[in-house]
């Protein structure tokens, strides 16, 4: 398939004149040579499972028996009958739109602070990255539960500050989700790292030139740093959006979706349907609806990127 596309396009008219080396050096051909590993991997390992999961979404499939085709039944149930579905969807949207901007903001601020060269910056970078290293293990779940317990560290700290407080932060349906958002913000390390490497890519001479022109700190930030950083910001936004919708472990191991479904995220409900309730067909339908939503949001981001993302190579 790959061969056809470039043979017919670039190969035919020039066949006799170009050597193999020349053909390979043609940008149109070279592009395929470079992305060939991805195409092979995608076709071999992803395409089939992806198509299958799409197919499953039109079936009743409990994994143990063969799937039974039921048309759009799953989608109908999802949109019109499952009262939990929209609740779960709303909770997830809330989480994504609260945690992604906050997390990015924290990551950006810290990255700006840490890009400064000092003897300790390596140390700081490591320390600020540490929470992201411990990831979403069971240990983090226990830790978070204990910190925000009614008799936990946070409440004792508040007590020391003269605000006696016995709130079960993770036990109340109005506060629990914010504890998970806080956890996401606390683990801003990966975005920070990307911002840091983005900052490092900005040519130093731009700043030097600006200094000579007498630009102040603010001027430098808005005229150089921010525009040059937009590719990283764009990347982080898209990526956090995608991973935000897939948030699973935090809810699954810390709150188990409770209290009163206030932290039952889309991916958790999808997983429960697929494996705990043995309705993989329904789970797949949920997955593809999520892909549609995330895909649309991503598309919007991509469509707007030429308005605000600055690429050195294109600018």
């Amino acid at each position: 398939m790959k061969k056809d596309s470039h043979d017919s396009k670039s190969g035919k008219p020039v066949k006799s004149r170009k050597t193999l080396r020349q053909i390979l050096c043609d940008e149109k051909v070279a592009g395929y040579v470079f992305i060939l590993p991805f195409i092979i991997g995608f076709v071999a390992f992803m395409a089939l499972p992806m198509l299958l999961s799409f197919g499953f979404s039109f079936t009743r499939y409990n994994i143990l028996d063969s799937p039974v085709f039921i048309g759009l039944e799953n989608y109908k149930t999802m949109f019109f009958e499952d009262s939990k579905f929209w609740r779960v969807f709303g909770v997830t949207m809330y989480y994504v739109f609260a945690s992604v901007p906050l997390r990015l903001l924290a990551a950006l601020l810290v990255a700006l602070l840490l890009v400064r060269k000092s003897k300790l910056s390596g140390f700081y970078r490591s320390v600020y990255y540490l929470p992201s290293i411990i990831g979403s293990s069971v240990a983090v779940a226990i830790l978070w539960k204990r910190m925000f317990a009614s008799d936990g560290v946070i409440n004792s700290l508040l007590g020391l500050l003269g605000i006696p407080c016995g709130i079960a932060w993770l036990g109340r349906s109005d506060t629990a989700i914010w504890m998970l958002i806080l956890l996401a913000v606390w683990q801003f390390g990966s975005s920070m790292l990307i911002f840091l490497s983005g900052l490092k890519q900005i040519p130093v001479n731009l700043y030097e030139a600006a200094t000579i022109d007498g630009a102040g700190w603010g001027m430098k930030f808005f005229k150089i740093t921010f525009p040059m950083l937009t590719p990283s910001i764009f990347f982080n936004t898209v990526n956090q959006l995608i991973t935000g919708f897939m948030v699973f472990t935090q809810s699954y191991i810390i709150t188990q979706g409770g209290p009163r479904d206030s932290t039952r995220f889309y991916a958790v409900y999808m997983y429960q349907n697929s494996f705990t309730y043995n309705k993989l067909g329904y789970g797949c339908a949920m997955a593809w609806f999520m892909i549609l939503v995330v895909g649309l949001l991503t598309l919007i981001l991509f469509k707007t990127q030429n308005k605000w993302v600055y690429y050195e190579s294109e600018g």
């Binding site: 596309s5 992305i35 892909i291 895909g295």
Partner: peptide, 23 residues
């Protein structure tokens, strides 16, 4: 590089990123 169906393959890559492993 500029080549045919670049957008298509890039979209494939993004969709693959959005696909939850559980599914």
């Amino acid at each position: 590089c500029e080549f045919r169906f670049k957008g298509f393959w890039f979209a494939c890559m993004l969709v693959a990123m959005m696909l939850p492993f559980q599914i």
